[in-house]
Amino acid sequence: MKAGWITLALGALLAAVPAPDAAAQTRTTAAAPRHTDADVRFVRMMIGHHQQALDMAALVPTRSQRADLRLLAERIDVSQRDEMATMHRWLQAHGAPAMDAHAGHGGAHASHDGAADSSHADMPGMATPEQMAALAAASGPAFDRMFLELMIRHHEGALQMVAELFASEGGGQEPSIFALANEVDADQRMEIGRMQALLEGPLSPTAPR
């Protein structure tokens, strides 16, 4: 008799436990931020944007005699290569092929049909082919100042791209894109500060020679 009472009590207790709300679970899943077309476009464009920074940084060792500028170029190279690797992995994970990183970035590369990719050419802060050629032809203090001026402008362009991503509808809300965009923003701001300090200090026109 006692065992039967216990069985009935357990049955009533289990019946009182609410079943999982499938609808609520679906709503939670649907509410999780998903990537947008703006996210894909941002990643693709930023890969090309970073590539030009790498091309500029690669000129420093053979054209500058300044140890501080060489160290800055190394830092830019390491940070932007790491971010590019992250961006390539993100595109692969989301089934979005990457664009030619060199297309239209101001170098000698073009798209497969022979014309530069205008979407890359129109990115903010990108150096023109003429500016890249002038930078490659310079050396010494003239190169140092030109490099810093072009790279500051280039980094400011990346900040604009991040701002445009977050201003787009739903852009930058998917967790990995949110983290990436904020990392790009933080890195570029820090490096802009370093470059401005060099331009206003040892590379200032009024600095003692």
Score class of each variant (00 low, 15 high):
Asp77Glu: 14
Ile6Met: 12
Ala136Lys: 15
Leu14Ser: 07
Gln196Ala: 01
Ala134Trp: 08
Met46Gly: 05
Pro208Glu: 08
Asn182Ser: 08
Ala121Leu: 10
Leu13Lys: 02
Ala19Cys: 01
Val40Pro: 00
Ala32Val: 11
Asp100Thr: 03
Ala9Ser: 07
Gly95Val: 10
Ala38Arg: 03
Gly201Phe: 07
Met1Glu: 12
Glu191Thr: 04
Pro175Thr: 05
Pro124Arg: 00
Thr206Ala: 10
Ala116Glu: 09
His109Trp: 11
Thr7Ala: 15
Gly114Cys: 06
Gln131Leu: 14
Ala96Val: 14
Pro33Thr: 05
Ala136Val: 07
Val43Gln: 01
Arg209Leu: 06
Gln92Met: 12
Ala93Trp: 00
Val60Cys: 04
Asp37Ile: 03
Arg34Asn: 09
Thr29Gly: 05
Ala186Ile: 03
Arg34Gln: 14
Arg70Pro: 09
Ser168His: 09
Ser119Leu: 12
Ala19Ser: 10
Gln92Ser: 14
Met190Asp: 15
Leu159Ile: 07
Leu71Val: 10
Arg89Cys: 00
Glu149Ala: 14
Ala96Thr: 11
Ala19Glu: 10
Met146Ala: 14
Ala134Cys: 02
Gly140Pro: 03
Asp82Ile: 02
Pro97Glu: 04
Leu91Arg: 03
Leu69Gln: 07
Ala181Ser: 04
Glu191Asn: 05
Ala67Val: 15
Ala16Glu: 02
Gly48Gln: 10
Gln65Ser: 11
Val184Gly: 04
Leu91Tyr: 01
Arg145Asp: 06
Phe143Ala: 01
Arg153Leu: 00
Ala22Ile: 14
His155Arg: 00
Ala186Glu: 12
Glu149Leu: 13
Glu130His: 11
Ala121Gln: 13
Ala58Val: 07
Pro18Cys: 10
Gly172Trp: 09
Arg89Glu: 11
Ala103Cys: 15
Glu83Arg: 01
Arg189Gln: 08
Ser111Cys: 13
Ser139Asn: 13
Gly193Val: 00
Glu74Arg: 14
Ala110Ile: 04
Gly106Thr: 08
Ala163Glu: 11
Met151His: 09
Val78Gly: 00
Asp55Cys: 01
Leu54Gly: 13
Ala163Val: 02
Pro202Gly: 03
Ser119Met: 10
Arg145Tyr: 10
Pro124Val: 04
Ala181Cys: 03
Leu10Pro: 02
Thr36Asn: 09
His109Glu: 15
Pro61Ile: 02
Gly106Asn: 06
Ala134Met: 12
Leu180Arg: 02
Ala179Asp: 11
Asp117Asn: 11
Arg89Lys: 12
Arg145Thr: 13
Leu165His: 08
Ala30Met: 09
Met84Trp: 07
Pro61Asp: 05
Ala23Gly: 12
Leu8Trp: 06
Arg153His: 02
Gly106Phe: 06
Thr128Arg: 06
His120Asp: 14
His94Val: 08
Ala137Asn: 06
Ala116Cys: 03
Ala32Met: 13
Phe42Cys: 00
Asp113His: 10
Thr62Ser: 14
Leu135Trp: 13
Pro61Trp: 11
Leu59His: 06
Asp187Leu: 03
Glu191Ser: 06
Ile47Gln: 08
Arg89Phe: 00
Ala127Asn: 06
Val43Lys: 00
Ile47Pro: 08
Ala134Gln: 15
Ala207Tyr: 11
Ser111Pro: 02
Met84Asn: 08
